[in-house]
Nucleic acid binder design. Structure first.
Lengths: 162, 162
DNA sequence: TATTGTTATACTCTATAACTATA
DNA sequence: TATAGTTATAGAGTATAACAATA
């Protein structure tokens, strides 16, 4: 799903350029942090021999907790177009993690659900995500992590009011 | 540059699905916030009739503050491959914002620099970025913004140690 | 008519591999 | 040999527009 920059780490070591005001910009710091976190997520899964993006993980959680939801509902929840969702579901379905069932009530929609195999895989993925979360928060106290999440939600609220 | 999800806002309004543990995951909240911030950035520039991505802005700042740097150095600073940088520079050059000069000392490298037009454009872009920054931080006090940036850098440090 | 899912198409970001010019 | 920039190619995320099936 969302953009895979496997960078954000090594580069900095080599590039001590003048970033001027950039480092004081919340948007810039946010972007760099998110990039590093993405790289850590990818590294965590790769090290475990698993392949999943943060977006795919979020999708699987959404489906398992809202079994039977339609592609439109899922696309809205993910904030992407319904046409964008199609190849993503194709891939997860091809991996045997998820199925498109026929909706008994509305012939236009698909009822999405995880397969038993998908459920098992998600349990494993969830453990990997916890490992990943522990590492990215390793320099933060529990209180700081809570504060960070709270402040991030405030930023999101501010950005939402465009 | 980095991934353009113009979503993150409207979707939530429509999608009140069970997100389970997702909302407690730092990585997830970070990703959603970054997505909303990206959308705000795009909206700010679009409203002003300007077209620029956060990545392009960062690139321009890096070039103007390190005039004469090579494409390799810039790619490293941005954390992308040198081949990825080529079409990005092509576009900015086509817009007349930036030039690839011949390096007087090393025939293999290009010395990157902003054009006078690029300098003027960047001044305008910087004003737009400040507007954008003000809005995304509008629900935060100055102290909270500082704290947020500090905590984000800590997360980045944690993620870097993969 | 409106909605859902799909397909076709088109960008952009991302990378790897191979080519060229230069060091 | 090694490095810098380019090109070719490929994969993934994103979107819009149009189409078929269904409501």
């Amino acid at each position: 799903m969302s953009r895979p920059p496997v960078n954000a780490n090594a580069p900095d070591l080599a590039a001590k350029l003048d970033r001027g005001v950039l480092s004081t910009l919340l948007g810039y710091v946010l972007r760099r942090t998110q990039s590093a976190v993405f790289a850590d997520f990818a590294a965590t899964f790769q090290a475990a021999g698993a392949a999943l993006t943060p977006g795919e993980f979020g999708l699987l959680v959404l489906v398992t907790r809202n079994t039977g939801l339609s592609q439109m509902a899922l696309a809205r929840a993910l904030g992407i177009d319904r046409s964008t969702l199609v190849p993503i579901l194709d891939r997860l379905q091809a991996r045997g993690l998820l199925v498109r069932r026929l909706s008994p009530t509305d012939g236009r929609t698909h009822a999405l659900a995880l397969t038993p195999s998908g459920d098992k895989a998600l349990a494993r993925f969830t453990r990997l995500v916890r490992t990943h979360e522990k590492r990215i928060a390793s320099h933060l106290s529990t209180a700081e992590t809570r504060t960070l999440i709270r402040l991030l939600e405030k930023v999101r609220a501010g950005a939402r009011s465009v």
